[in-house]
Design a protein around this nucleic acid. Structure first.
Length: 577
RNA sequence: GCGCUUGUAGCUCAACUGGAUAGAGCGCCUGACUUCGGAUCAGGAGGUUCUGGGUUCGACUCCUAGCAGGCGCACCA
């Protein structure tokens, strides 16, 4: 029930009628015509720019054209109370109160579908996110992208798309060898009391590896750990298993569950890289060549090497990209291309990758490869999650790789909680840097937007409790003949924007719109609630301990949206706080 | 040097794919608690949307040239 879409359709129909009669000239496309919420000062409900869009084709002033159009619109709809034309040529529609009564009745009868974007074609999506290297626990830096991916998936699911959530496990390559060695040294430390070589920069120094080592020792009594070469393969698998256990546990704490974990190693062992390169070769997208050093940099150490390159410049990249190392091994990029071929073969309509800001430079080359493999554009959508700046005691908190000096997901959630973390991380557009202030996030006041929104829900729950009603049961409204007050209509207007919010969040993959919207709705509600303080007549519950149907319906709708919005964000809607 | 990205109130950020007099919160100032839960509300001050050009009925939004910050720019993953 999107009233903006509904009235846009109505207006377009009217335009067609008018043009048939020769009263109006229409351009080829009616794209630019919109319906939206007018600024509050106009005391109006829906506005349209139609007169301005069509003024040129009709060679008329927008305000003149608006007169004709406004008349036609008003004539077509008996729920319109008043229609006015404002300066540049906006047509503002004001509804009769009964419009809003009908509106709420329809929502209550269709709770399950309210907000779902009905225009959109239903697609299947693969969302790849987190994909952190399986060498240790997740830290705060991973958190934002993890939550972004999860909630993008939730928004798409809410809109009835098909979604698969996937984690690409980089369990192949040099870093894994170094990781396994590090685990091995920790094992020797435990069994043979040898010191861990702290000065070796290639190794992973983190204390968590001691736990990995101990677990591996405990669970594999039969293994003789003396000779690394003999057990390296087995130890690699065990080490990755430990890391993944920890990562999955971290994700779980964040409320995130992936459907698939895809192993890079498996893709390589399956010869998928060779196959995909073969394909690219046949289609003339690869060649042997050299990559030039970037200009303006210190390039003394640059060595030009002849390697197998992918022609990503054909697709807008600034240089071609290496697929094979000089020792013959595939680059990370090569196996990632194979992975994306693997994704494409699974026939999703769209692939979504969530990347950290430091990987933004990677987007062109990987989307180039997807373009080359699929012969299509825009199949792959990459979203960047920008940096999170941590603030503690009003000071930036720098994480460094030095042991013990970074905050893990575990630490974070223990300190501030899952819900606050999710809400705050999402409350901003993903492409701006985010200040994450520990002290604010922990605070339980209106400074913390999560509690502000949850409090709204808890207040409604409290009213229901006072009346001995169940918030989650069906509302019992017999007769929808009531009228709403101005303040109530303000809330209803906000509610009417919910489907628009969901649509934008879904089509633009911008889930931050949801917490922002929920905050605004909660704000309208808190104002309304406080009216009852000055004027007892505006309280929900009257002196006879009763509530009227109009209010019970309104409360129900507000609480439902808050609840379903919070569930998309992935946080609780508590009835008591 | 090149690419991507950000620049909006003192601070942190919104702005419905180009709409109207650019909105919130924090901070500052003034007010409302024997509360249907004050974890709340009402009001005030605060703006050349980084700068210059362009496109148009209309630009925070699009184009272009700059400026400033961030990220990235080999066979790491």
């Amino acid at each position: 029930m999107n009233i903006f879409d509904k009235y846009l359709d109505k207006i377009k129909k009217i335009l067609l009628d008018l043009s048939k009669n020769g009263d109006l000239i229409l351009p080829d496309k009616l794209d630019g015509i919109t319906t939206e919420t007018p600024p509050s000062k106009f005391n109006s409900d829906i506005s349209t720019n139609v007169a301005m869009v069509l003024s040129k084709a009709n060679n008329k002033l927008p305000t003149d054209l608006a007169v004709t159009l406004a008349e036609a619109i008003k004539k077509s709809d008996n729920l319109i109370d008043d229609i006015s034309i404002i300066k540049p040529g906006f047509i503002n529609i004001k509804f009769k109160p009964i419009f809003w009564t009908n509106f709420i009745e329809e929502i209550i009868k269709n709770f399950e579908t309210f907000g779902i974007n009905t225009n959109e074609k239903k697609n299947s999506y693969l969302v790849e996110f987190v994909s952190a290297n399986p060498t240790g626990p997740l830290h705060v830096g991973h958190c934002r992208g993890a939550i972004l991916g999860d909630v993008i998936a939730n928004v798409l699911l809410f809109n009835k798309h098909k979604v698969t959530k996937e984690y690409y496990v980089n369990d192949y390559g040099n870093q894994i060898i170094n990781f396994t060695k590090s685990v091995y040294f920790r094992i020797r430390e435990i069994i043979y009391k040898e010191n861990f070589p702290k000065d070796n920069d290639d190794l992973y120094p983190g204390d968590y590896l001691i736990d990995f080592a101990q677990n591996i020792i405990n669970l594999n009594k039969k293994i003789d750990f003396k000779d690394f070469e003999k057990i390296s393969e087995e130890l690699t698998a065990l080490s990755i298993e430990e890391a993944l256990k920890l990562i999955k546990n971290n994700l779980n704490i964040l409320g995130i569950n992936h459907d698939n974990f895809i192993s890079e190693k498996k893709i390589v062992k399956n010869h998928e890289v060779e196959k995909v390169i073969d394909f690219l070769q046949k289609n003339n997208f690869v060649y042997k060549g050299k990559i030039k050093a970037p200009a303006g940099e210190n390039n003394e150490k640059w060595v030009e090497r002849e390697q197998l390159l992918f022609k990503s410049t054909d697709f807008g990249d600034d240089k071609d990209r290496a697929l094979q190392k000089s020792d013959g091994a595939w680059t990370y990029f090569a196996s990632d291309v194979a992975y994306h071929k693997n994704k494409l073969d699974r026939k999703f309509d769209y692939l979504i990758n969530i990347l950290g800001a430091d990987h933004a430079g990677y987007i062109k080359r990987i989307s180039s490869s997807v373009d080359a493999l699929s012969g299509k554009k825009n199949k792959l959508i990459c979203k960047i999650s920008q940096l999170v700046k941590l603030i503690k005691n009003n000071k930036p908190f720098k994480m460094s790789k030095r042991k013990g000096d970074y905050i893990t997901v575990d630490d974070l959630i223990k300190e501030v909680g899952k819900d606050a973390t999710r809400f705050i991380m999402l409350n901003r557009s993903s492409d701006v840097e985010l200040d994450f202030d520990f002290d604010v996030v922990k605070e339980k006041t209106k400074d913390n937007p999560l509690y502000y929104v949850q409090y709204c829900y808890a207040r409604i729950a409290s009213v229901y409790r006072h009346l001995g009603l169940e918030l989650n049961s069906k509302v019992d409204v017999k007769d929808y003949s009531f009228e709403y007050s101005k303040e109530e209509i303000d809330i209803l207007k906000k509610i009417s924007e919910w489907p628009k919010c969901i649509e934008a969040a879904s089509t633009k993959l911008e889930p931050h719109r949801i917490p922002v919207y929920l905050y605004e709705l909660a704000s309208e509600f808190h104002s309304y609630w406080n009216l009852g303080k000055d004027n007892p007549k505006k309280r929900f519950i009257n002196d006879q301990k009763e509530i009227s149907d109009d209010k019970i319906a309104l409360l129900k709708v507000v609480s439902n949206i808050i609840k379903s919005g919070l569930s998309i964000v992935g946080v609780d809607a508590p009835e008591k706080m």
